[in-house]
Design a protein around this nucleic acid. Structure first.
Lengths: 351, 351
DNA sequence: GGACGTTGTGTTACCTGTAACAGAGAGGTT
DNA sequence: AACCTCTCTGTTACAGGTAACACAACGTCC
């Protein structure tokens, strides 16, 4: 079926080795022979088999990328950033959606290893992803964690300072007059969730507002989660005057539930979240958020990974902390005159 | 570095072949031997090498997926759908972002072939992608086209009826009273762009509204494209009363430009587009759109592909046309009482 | 003319796993 | 005892490339 090196060799009347030399351009081939071989390659439409190459060189030219969900507006740019950087380095990316499911994630990891990826970029599902990664990491396999760090797993990572980001958001809420502030958080075995909750507590504490368990709602970080949490929240009396949600999808779900109950944001209740809602920010710049440079997570992560793969990274693990910026819009009664982002700052790169 | 079959064999005191038999569970191995081998596998953390297997079986258990951009809110779900279906079939996905660039797309295709993918899912950049695919398709290589079809390339495809979808949108605009309707289209070598333009013309013709070149703006299908096209449109006198854009990103860019000039939608000008804007539809259900079931493009496409790979597809090429639904909201002065989509219909699958 | 280098090419073995066949014992049958 | 069958295991060759070495042909220098 597929054309092999030896088919080309036969047609060109040379040995397989000579064809290999031509394909790899190393030189040491007579120009006349070279021409004959090139003709044969074109005539037969020969494409070298990377699987066979990889078998010898132990280099598959492939990395793995595991995220909970590509559709998530935070992870989609992460994937693009990683893929673009990988391409530039001559690598292909095997993409996996773990659906935040530990078992699925583990299966993916095993299969990626079987595919002999040279390194792994992963936004781990939860802290318990650690067990799937520990043995790998100990054996020196290149791994870079994205967005979420794992306790006791010492490897390269790209994260944002979730504590500081969350604190900024909640401080802002407090500054504009809110004191009864609810928080939608996720299961506490995800570092970003923990850190954002911690930022929330710190901001309250700094303002001498007592922390209250009844204002913290643990939920899933998708739209449904936000929707449900908001429904529970609506049973509180008195209602909180503002909500801070752990991510954008949760905020969207919360918004939906609030609207269904006839509550307007920000008139009746304030709403802020971590992560921007990309296109929404343009169409109706409304939600006050902390924005992370998502694509940079992917590209820097890939860069760290390739340094590891090339063994140029040294023994110590590196941790990149990206800045998360407070973007004040209209969703919490604030009219502070902080400028909205101009076109250029949020523009898609054009082709 | 990596543990091989022979390492396991040595440790278990058997031949490589016996280990292979245990790994593949074919039977014909003494239970006692089996135990010894399994112990050795566990002790050494052996993971079989798919590259080597693939070399023999000519099955890499990998497919390629090329889209213009994962970040695009239409393609992200396509990618998820394809990946999920692939996983269930025991396949991994190599993801490529072509950036709608023909040269890049071509490089990707060559490299994917070198990686010996068993099939290719592709949303082609333009009609000219055909040249990169023709030879492959003729040699019987499994290919499925997503979203966009290619003239004279006879292979399986999953598309929506863009002519009908566009016609529905424009008919709706006409029904609520618009007669001077602009259209933002893309370069005419993309089938969806052509078809949507055709739907636009058909709707005008049916209403005996003359087609006018000056109302059709050719642009790139990203936010910047919509933004620029709207700027040009604003030079028209009189202004159109409504705009129909070729996709969602273009509408978002247009919206931005309109707002900057102090024009409100729909008060001053109507705006509708092809493709929904996922989260936006929830947060502020506002834009009237034609919505395509994006994830289904990916999952059905993958399904077609695996049937081809398994050679269960027959010689004839198959074409699946998915329905695109008109969702009437508030962006074009229409208050027709068509219900907004309920939560369940747009919900994310929860983990 | 022989030792030496240079250039171009082929040979052999190997990367990791598997198919196909070979062969060693055990046990049963006549 | 000779033969067959069955079960289990090993051997060899091969998938499609490549590294390392061998070696032939040629020129060059003393």
């Amino acid at each position: 079926m597929a054309v092999t090196l030896r088919d080309v060799a036969r047609r060109a009347g040379v040995s397989a080795m000579t064809v290999s030399r031509v394909v790899n351009g190393g030189g040491g081939v007579d120009p006349e022979t070279q021409r004959k071989v090139e003709d044969a390659i074109l005539a037969l439409d020969y494409v070298p088999n990377r699987l066979a190459r990889g078998l010898i060189s132990h280099k598959s030219k492939t990395i793995g990328l595991i995220v909970p969900d590509v559709v998530n507006p935070f992870f989609a740019p992460v994937v693009r950033g990683a893929e673009t950087t990988a391409r530039k380095a001559g690598y292909r990316v095997l993409l996996c959606n773990s659906e935040a499911d530990l078992r699925l994630e583990r299966e993916y990891i095993e299969d990626l290893i079987a595919h002999r990826i040279e390194g792994l970029l992963i936004a781990p599902a939860t802290d318990r992803s650690r067990v799937s990664l520990l043995a790998l990491q100990k054996s020196g396999f290149p791994i870079v964690l994205l967005d979420r760090s794992l306790p006791d797993l010492d490897c390269d990572s790209v994260v944002s300072d979730s504590v500081a980001g969350a604190r900024k958001l909640v401080e802002h809420l407090i500054k504009v007059g809110h004191r009864r502030i609810a928080h939608f958080t996720e299961s506490d075995d995800v570092s970003t969730g923990r850190d954002r909750l911690e930022g929330y507590r710190q901001a309250l504490q700094a303002a001498r507002i007592p922390y209250s368990e009844e204002l913290v709602f643990r939920t899933t970080v998708d739209r449904i989660g936000g929707y449900r949490a908001a429904q529970h929240l609506l049973a509180l009396d008195p209602l909180p005057t503002a909500i801070f949600t752990v991510n954008n999808m949760t905020a969207v779900g919360a918004m939906q539930a609030l609207r269904e109950r006839g509550l307007a944001v920000p008139k009746d209740i304030g709403l802020v979240c971590y992560d921007d809602v990309e296109h929404l920010a343009v169409l109706s710049p409304f939600m006050t958020v902390v924005d992370q440079p998502a694509e940079t997570f992917g590209s820097l992560g890939a860069q760290l990974l390739f340094e590891r793969i090339a063994d140029k990274a040294g023994a110590r693990s590196r941790r990149i902390v990206l800045q998360a910026d407070l973007i004040v819009r209209d969703s919490c009664c604030a009219k502070t005159g902080v400028p909205r982002r101009p076109m250029s700052a949020t523009a898609q790169p054009s082709a």
